[in-house]
Simulated scan of single mutants.
Amino acid sequence: MSFTQQLKNENQDVLEQIFAHSFVQGIGKGDVPHDSIAHYIKADYEYLNAFMHVYGLAVAKSAQREDIELFNEQIGFILHSEVHPHHNFCNVIGVDYEALQGYELPPTADHYIKHMLYHAHTGSLGEILAALLPCPWTYLEIGNELLRQYQPNDSHPFYTWINFYAEEEVAGLTGQLCARLDKYAEQASEMEKQQMKTAFRKSCQLELAFWEMSYTCEQWPLEEAVSR
């Protein structure tokens, strides 16, 4: 069994909770509160900006051109392709994409970014890969699960979102990250592999927390008090 398959098996419990989450199921049913969608986009836009910075740090730690090419391709995907599911959400709630950019991160998203940056600055290339992988992996699984469970047609409000994450391009890019992490794990010590497992597990749990943060429109405590 490959290292990444082992990671996926060990974190299937988190993935099942993600599948069952009200926001994710709402996407499948075509019914998510508009405020939750807006909160998600505000946070995810800034999160993906930070995600690209982490890929940049991975480039700085890469000794081989094939790794630099891999991370550069992942950055290009976020810049040029991953805006499409955001636009789908924006069209559903009737808000311009630009109007949801430039907001302060809620606590969970802020923590998630700092978790990734910690591993990017202090850990090995394997740790960085392990911390990054749960994001594309869980979205690929969500897309396929919602496609299987709800079989949406083009009249479904989130048809574009679901099909985007179930497409071969997402599967291919995720597969490339898995292959590189597997290759790295073959040469890693047991301590390094445990550090990678820890980084992966925490990122999976933070993916689940990100959905909850979005659905509940999580705010910083004092900001929430002021808004009341």
Rank of each mutant, 00 (worst) to 15 (best):
V59L: 08
T122A: 05
V14L: 12
P107Y: 11
H86E: 02
S81I: 00
D44L: 06
F158A: 04
D110G: 09
K29T: 08
S36W: 04
D96A: 11
V32S: 12
E66V: 09
L132Q: 11
Q205H: 15
K61S: 06
S62N: 03
Q17V: 09
W211L: 07
L133S: 11
Y139F: 13
L15V: 15
K42R: 14
V32E: 03
G76K: 05
S81R: 08
L70M: 13
V14C: 12
I68C: 02
Y184W: 14
Q6S: 14
L206S: 09
E98C: 00
N88T: 03
L7F: 10
I27S: 02
E223K: 14
L70K: 04
S227P: 00
E46K: 08
Y97M: 01
N163H: 10
K29R: 15
N144D: 07
P134E: 04
L100E: 01
H156C: 11
N49F: 07
H80F: 12
N144P: 00
Y159N: 11
Q74E: 09
F3H: 04
N144R: 14
A199Y: 13
Q12W: 15
G123P: 08
E224Y: 13
P221S: 09
F23A: 09
H21L: 06
Y215R: 12
H39G: 01
V83R: 01
A209I: 05
A120L: 07
A199D: 02
M191Y: 05
Q151N: 12
M213L: 06
T198S: 05
D35A: 09
T108P: 03
E69P: 00
L147A: 07
A130I: 07
I78S: 02
I162W: 04
P134I: 06
V92I: 14
H156N: 12
E190A: 14
L129V: 04
T122G: 00
I37Y: 04
G30K: 08
Q205A: 14
K29P: 00
G26N: 11
A188W: 09
Q194L: 13
G102P: 02
L79Q: 08
V24F: 04
K42H: 03
M52A: 11
F210Y: 14
G102T: 03
E169S: 08
P107E: 11
H39Q: 10
T138N: 14
N11T: 15
C204K: 10
Y55F: 15
D154T: 07
K193F: 10
L7R: 07
I75P: 08
F71R: 07
I75T: 10
K183S: 13
H86D: 01
W220E: 13
E127D: 13
M116R: 10
N88D: 03
D96I: 00
A130G: 12
W137M: 11
A225Q: 15
V59P: 02
L100I: 04
R201T: 15
G76S: 06
D13H: 15
K61A: 05
P106E: 13
E98Q: 09
H87A: 06
A50M: 10
E16R: 15
I113H: 06
P152E: 10
G76R: 08
W161P: 02
N163M: 03
N163R: 08
P33V: 06
H84F: 00
A38R: 07
G28T: 08
T122W: 01
K114Y: 13
L173H: 12
F164C: 05
